[in-house]
């Protein structure tokens, strides 16, 4: 899923202050799972924004709504009736949700309330971990299902580097060394031999380096 964090209210205010009425739109998918943009969080943010204006004796119309998914047209239409009554939309979707709203509601400014961070997993309650960079050529099968591109701070394919100490990354002691994880897992699986082979340079053309990516499947089109 996509993991995101809520922006600070002053930063959001800076972007929305020019509008008299704002529709705050949540997304009940990934960003609900990471407890930042679902129904509950949308209500909380709308209330916080109302309060911040009230404190300054400023009158604003702040309406809340939540879509099941902000990145799919069929769902985006769920707020179609409310959009014309507002000057702008404040989105609690990820970057994809914000841009999908902008594509559908062409005449409305769409403002992000979140900083979108990464593709990751809920490791435990309150902990989300990045583990996929979407490089477009998954090689997890060779690395014991631990991604060297994502979990190594230097994207090393023939690692580990000299900065690995006690299973920790040189970048920060809170970061586990991805290569330490790869080695331990392959050792446990009895597949350490996979790492003796030289891994040639990665083809980054299938990653974002090749430009914005798009998947078109004729068999799925209406």
């Amino acid at each position: 899923m996509i993991v995101a964090e809520l922006k600070e209210i002053p930063e959001i205010r800076k972007m929305i202050d020019r509008y008299q009425s704002v529709l705050v739109v949540g997304c009940d998918s990934c960003v609900a799972e990471c407890a930042v943009g679902g129904r509950r969080e949308t209500a909380l943010l709308a209330a916080a924004i109302r309060l911040s204006y009230a404190k300054e004796n400023k009158s604003r119309i702040i309406t809340e709504a939540c879509l099941d998914r902000q990145c799919v047209d069929d769902f985006i239409e769920g707020v179609a009736s409310q959009v014309p009554e507002h000057d702008a939309i404040l989105s609690l979707g990820c970057g994809a949700g914000v841009q999908a709203l902008a594509r559908v509601y062409t005449d409305k400014p769409i403002i992000p309330a979140l900083d979108t961070l990464f593709i990751g997993e809920t490791e435990m309650r309150g902990v989300w971990q990045e583990n996929c960079l979407g490089c477009g050529q998954c090689k997890l099968g060779y690395f014991g299902a631990v991604c060297p591109v994502t979990r190594c701070s230097k994207k090393l394919m023939n690692g580990p580097c000299g900065g690995s100490k006690d299973g920790r990354c040189e970048v920060h002691p809170d970061i586990p060394c991805g290569w330490d994880m790869i080695l331990k897992r392959l050792e446990a699986l009895g597949e350490i031999d996979r790492l003796r082979e030289y891994v040639p340079p990665v083809d980054w053309s299938t990653s974002h380096s090749g430009g914005p990516r798009r998947v078109v499947r004729e068999d799925q089109k209406p």
Partner: peptide, 10 residues
């Protein structure tokens, strides 16, 4: 930005 297009081995 950390480039790391290649690693030292490569």
């Amino acid at each position: 930005v950390g480039v790391f297009d290649l690693d030292s081995m490569q």
